[in-house]
Amino acid sequence: MEQFITIILRTIFFYVLILIIFRLMGKREIGELSILDLVVFIMIGELAIVAIDNPKQSVTLTSVAMILLMIIQILMAKISLKSKRFRDLIDGKPTIIINRGKIDEDAMRKQRYNFDDLLTQLREKDIRSIADVEFAILESSGSLSVIEKMNNPNGEPKEGDITIPLIIDGAVEEENLQRINKTNFWLRQELKKLGYRDIRQISFCSYENGKFFVDILDEE
Rank of each mutant, 00 (worst) to 15 (best):
K27L: 07
K27S: 05
R28L: 04
G31E: 14
E32A: 07
L33S: 01
S34D: 12
I35Q: 04
L36F: 12
L36M: 12
L38N: 14
L38E: 13
L38K: 14
L38P: 04
V39I: 15
V39A: 01
V39W: 00
V40C: 03
F41L: 12
F41P: 00
I42Q: 05
I42D: 04
M43R: 02
M43C: 14
M43D: 06
I44C: 01
G45W: 01
G45N: 03
E46F: 14
E46A: 12
L47F: 09
L47D: 01
L47Q: 02
I49E: 13
I49D: 07
V50K: 12
V50E: 12
A51V: 05
A51F: 01
I52G: 08
D53G: 11
P55D: 08
K56Q: 10
Q57G: 05
S58F: 03
S58M: 09
S58K: 06
S58V: 03
S58E: 05
V59L: 10
L61G: 05
S63V: 06
V64P: 10
V64Q: 11
M66Y: 02
M66K: 02
I67N: 09
L68M: 12
L68I: 13
L69D: 09
M70P: 05
M70K: 01
I72G: 03
Q73I: 08
I74N: 02
L75V: 14
A77F: 03
L81V: 12
S83K: 11
R85V: 15
R85L: 14
R85E: 14
F86H: 07
F86K: 13
D88Y: 12
L89K: 10
I90V: 15
I90R: 06
I90Q: 08
G92E: 15
G92C: 15
P94F: 11
P94G: 10
I97P: 00
I98M: 10
I98P: 00
R100I: 15
G101M: 06
G101W: 09
K102M: 07
I103E: 02
D104M: 15
D106C: 07
A107N: 07
A107W: 04
M108K: 09
M108Q: 11
R109G: 07
K110T: 12
K110V: 13
K110Y: 06
Q111L: 07
R112A: 13
R112M: 15
Y113L: 06
D116P: 02
D117E: 09
L118K: 00
L118D: 00
L119T: 11
T120Y: 03
L122T: 03
K125L: 08
D126G: 00
R128P: 03
